[in-house]
Design a protein around this nucleic acid. Structure first.
Lengths: 196, 196, 196, 196
DNA sequence: GACTAAACGAGACGGTACGTCTTGTCTTTCG
DNA sequence: CGAAAGACAAGACGTACCGTCTCGTTTAGTC
C-alpha cells in the first residue's frame, strides 16, 4: 500500500485530498464498469489527478482498491466473548455475513481475490493485509475454545479456519449464492458436531 | 468452447493439428510466463498458427485454457461405490487431491477461477462446464449416502458440497497450502462426525 | 485480364455467369463503398462466388474493375474524318467528354489511375490496355492532320497528345472540375493557334 | 497536418526529434519498399517511436509523407519577374522540372496523387496544401502577363494552369516520361503562340 | 518536491483483408 | 458410360496491419 513519508523532510506534503479522490473514483468506477474495465487512466481522469500521482503511491489498481476497502469500508470485526465456542462462532459468522452482504463489497472482494491469483506480488499483500487479519479474528475464538476444551477432536483450529472461510469464499466465488443464516447453522453443526 | 461443424458441408475442415498445437502452447506458456503474461499473440506465435484461428474458435485466452484442461488433463473422476459414505468420501477426496497435485494444473485452476471473477461470460462457462461437473460427481456420492441414511442430520448435501470444495479451493487460492492426506481425515471427521 | 483457355480440353468450362456477377458486384460495390472500401472478399460475397474464382482469373481488384470497365462501358470512340484537324479534334474531345461525364465512370478512372501509381504491375497493364488505346485514337487524328499539313510548327504529335490527355486527367484528378464545352474551345485554341 | 499546441501549457512538449525521425523513416521506407509497402508500423519501428506518436500527429501515412515533402524537400519556387510572359513561363517551368527531377520526389508525388484519389479526406488536404500552392505560383506569373497584355486571346489563366500542370502530371502519372527541356519549348509554343 | 498535464516508447488488443489451401460438388471432354 | 480434368462455392488457414487502448515513464510547468 502507500508508504507514508517521514515527517520533517522538504517538499510538498502528500495531498490527502487527491488520495481520497482517487480511492473514491476507484470504487465508483469499479461499480460502474467492473474491475476488468477499471484502468489507472480512468481513475486519474475521474479523480482529477495525474496518473503519476497514482503510480507514485500504489503499485497497481488492485492495491488502490485494497486501500479503498480498508479506508472506506469498516472491515474490523470485534470478537467479543459470548461465553461459549458455539455462541462465539455463531456471532462471528453473523458479523462476517453482514459485512459481506453489500453487493459492492462482494464484487470488490471477488476482484481482489482474482487479482491475487494473477499478480503474485499483490497476492502476497492481499493475503498478509486482508486474509490473515480475518483468520486471526477467528483464531482468537478458537484459542478461547481450545482453552475451554470445546474443540472437537480431530479438527485442529487451522482446519476449522480453512473450512469456515473456504465455505464462505466458495459460495461467493464459485456459486454466486451469498452466504445466509441457514449456512451459519449448518456450519456450526459441522464444526461443533462431535462434542454436541 | 469450439463448435463442431456438421459433416458433409463444403469448405476446409478444422485442423485438429492446429487445435492441439494451440492448446499445448497455451499450457506451456502459462507455465513459463504465468497467466498474466499469457497473450493470444503469444499462443499464436508459439503454436505456429494465426491469431484469427484462435479467435475463430475460442472467445478468450481463458477459454483456450479451459479447453486445454478438459482435453489434456484427464479430469474425469470415477465415483465407484466403496460400500459406505465415509469410504466413498475418502476415495473421492483422495482422487481429487491426486488430480490437483500437479502444480501446473493448480496454477491453471487458480487462473481460471480468477478469470471467472473478472470476466462474467467466461465465469458462466467455467461454472457450467467445470465446477458443476465436479459438484455433480460428489453429488452422486451424497445421493448414495442419503439412500443409506448415512448423512448426518442438519447438513444438506448442497452444504456438504460447499464445504468440501470450499475448503479445497480456499487452501489453493488463499493459503497456497495444497490439500493433503491430513486434510482428508479432518474433512471426513467434520462431515461424518455426528453419525460416527 | 483473364486468359481464355484453349477450347477442346477437358474440365468444366469457365462460368460466364460468375464472371459477369463478379464484374457487376465490383462496380456496384465501388459505387457504394468507394474503391478503398472495395475488397475481394466483398466482391465474392456480393456476387455469390468464391474468392478463389476471382483470384483464378484476375490478379487484383483493380484488374477486375478494368475488366468491368472494358466489358460494361462502351469505351470505343470512333474517329471519323470530319474533314479538318480542328473539326476532328473538336469531335474527338466532345466524344471523350461525353464518355467521361458519367460520375461512376469518372470515379472508376480515378481509382484505376491511382492504383496504377501504387501497383507497378497493374500500372503497366493499365497503360497498355487502356491509356495507350486512347492515345492511339488521338494519334490517328494527328496523323491525318500531319498529312494535311495542319499541325502547328513546334508541336510534335506526342506533345499534343500529352497536352490533351494531361489537361483532361488533371481536371479530374487534381481539381475535381469535370471537363466541359468551354475547355474544348480553349484546348483547340491552344493547339491549333499558330496556324489559325 | 500537425497542430501546434499553444505555448505555456503544462505537459511534455512535442518531441522534435521524434518528428524528424518519423519523417526521415517514412521517406527512406518509401524509397526502399514503395508506397504500397509503407506501413505505420514500419515507420514506427524504423524511427524508434511508437505507433501512437504517429497517430497522434498525422491521420494517415500519406499525411506523414506530405509533411516530409514540405519539411525536407525545399518546395518553394520563387517567381522572379524575368521581364516578359514567355521568359517568366520558361523560368517557372525550368525551376519546376528541376525540382521534380529527383526520382525520389517523383515517386512521392505519384503516391500522394494516388492516395488523394482514394482517400477523400487526404485528397482535400493535398489539393489545399500542395496543389493549390503550385497553381498560385503560376497564377502570379499569369497575373503579371495579363497586366502586360501578353496573354493570348481565348486562353483564360485558369486553363493555362490546367494545361501546364496537366501536361506535367500526365507525363509523370501516365507515360512515365519525365518532363524535359524539349517539353518546355513545346509548352511555351502552345501557350504563347498567337502573340508570337 | 508533490502536483496536474500531456507526450512518449512499447506492445497487446480485437478486428479485417489478404492470398493460399482444402473439401466436396458439379460440369465437361475423352477413352 | 466412366474416368480424368478442372471450375465451382464454401470456408479454414497463416500472415500482416489496422487503429485503439493502456501501460508505466518522462518531461514540463505550477503550487
Amino acid at each position: 500500500m502507500a508508504d507514508r513519508p517521514s515527517p520533517g523532510r522538504p517538499g510538498r506534503k502528500r495531498s490527502e485530498e487527491s488520495r481520497l479522490a482517487i480511492l473514491t473514483a476507484a470504487m465508483e468506477l469499479t461499480a460502474e464498469v467492473g474491475y476488468a474495465g477499471l484502468t489507472i487512466e480512468g481513475i486519474a481522469a475521474r479523480s482529477g489527478t495525474g496518473k503519476q500521482t497514482i503510480y507514485r503511491w500504489w503499485p497497481s489498481k488492485a492495491d488502490v482498491l485494497l486501500d479503498a476497502l480498508a479506508t472506506k469500508a469498516r472491515l474490523h470485526i470485534p470478537v467479543p466473548d459470548e461465553g461459549g465456542y458455539e455462541a462465539d462462532l455463531r456471532r462471528f459468522l453473523g458479523d462476517t455475513f453482514e459485512l459481506g452482504s453489500r453487493p459492492q463489497v462482494i464484487d470488490l472482494l471477488r476482484a481482489l481475490m482474482a487479482e491475487a491469483q494473477i499478480n503474485e506480488n499483490f497476492g502476497e499483500r492481499f493475503r498478509e493485509e486482508f486474509l490473515r487479519r480475518r483468520r486471526d479474528a477467528l483464531g482468537e475464538i478458537l484459542t478461547r475454545a481450545r482453552a475451554r476444551g470445546d474443540l472437537p477432536a480431530g479438527l485442529p483450529p487451522e482446519t476449522v479456519t480453512d473450512i469456515v472461510f473456504g465455505t464462505l469464499w466458495y459460495r461467493i466465488l464459485a456459486t454466486r449464492r451469498l452466504p445466509d443464516r441457514r449456512l451459519i447453522d449448518e456450519l456450526v453443526t459441522a464444526l461443533t458436531g462431535p462434542t454436541a
